[in-house]
Simulated assay, not measured.
Amino acid sequence: MAEALNLAIIVVALLALFFLLKGRPKTRPLPERPGAGSYTPVPAGEPVLHWADGGGQFDVEVLGESRYRDTIRALAGDHGDARADARHKALLLPDDANPYEDKAVAVFVAGEMVGYLAPKDALALRQRLTRQDIPGALTSCDAAVRGGAVWEGKRLAYAVWLDLDLRN
């Protein structure tokens, strides 16, 4: 009798599991996002302001450079086995159409996209733009492409650093 009861419990449990799995609500597919590299904002016009308040510290790093490593390598110029420190002018474009980050700020050097500001840095820059009464405007600052030294026979990565003071 105990075996029959155990068998009945197992059958009921299996049927319940079957109906739970079969009858669960279907999940909606995730919205389609652009494929890798298919979305790039385009800066238009000239910058309305050049930020010159970083004091030559270059302590704001641009993120997402791995997607643009060939461009950044070219911007570093020829530096042999030593570390690069190539100076450029960067354009900072508030990117309201970015499908991944609603407060994004894209960074361009020599007309080429090199990455984005970190979310906290993008928010700080946007707050500064608002205080200057130029929200959403294209601005510029000095940039340094650093890195790329040879270490243990391998070339290290490059990074783009901006001369901006975003603490205010």
Rank of each mutant, 00 (worst) to 15 (best):
I10E: 10
E61F: 04
A157G: 10
P31R: 03
D165M: 00
E101I: 00
R128P: 01
R128C: 06
A4G: 02
L93H: 04
Y158R: 10
A52Q: 12
A90N: 07
H79E: 07
L21W: 14
A159I: 05
E3T: 09
F108E: 00
V48Q: 13
G111A: 05
P135L: 01
K26T: 14
L20F: 13
A36K: 14
R87W: 04
A74D: 12
K103A: 10
A86R: 13
P135C: 00
A82T: 10
I9T: 09
A144I: 01
V60I: 11
S38H: 04
T40S: 15
R126K: 13
V107F: 01
A97T: 11
R131K: 15
V11E: 11
D95C: 02
P29Y: 01
P25H: 09
P119K: 02
K26G: 06
L93E: 11
A122H: 01
V160I: 05
I134F: 03
G37W: 13
F108K: 03
G23V: 12
A124Y: 02
A86Y: 14
V12Y: 10
L138Q: 03
A76H: 06
K120F: 01
L14Y: 11
A144Y: 05
P94V: 00
G35M: 07
P29S: 08
A13V: 14
L91I: 02
A110L: 05
E101Y: 12
N168C: 05
L125W: 00
L123N: 11
K26P: 04
A144H: 10
F18C: 14
A36P: 07
P47K: 03
E32N: 04
P99R: 04
A44R: 14
A122D: 00
K103Q: 09
V109K: 05
P43K: 08
D78A: 10
E61H: 06
P94W: 00
Y39R: 06
N168E: 13
Q57F: 03
S140E: 02
A159H: 05
F19C: 14
D59H: 12
A106L: 06
K120M: 00
A104P: 11
T130M: 04
K120C: 00
D78K: 07
G77R: 05
R126F: 03
D78L: 06
S38R: 03
T130H: 06
Q57V: 02
V42I: 08
N168W: 05
L20W: 13
P119Q: 02
T139S: 09
L92E: 02
E61C: 04
H50R: 14
E61S: 07
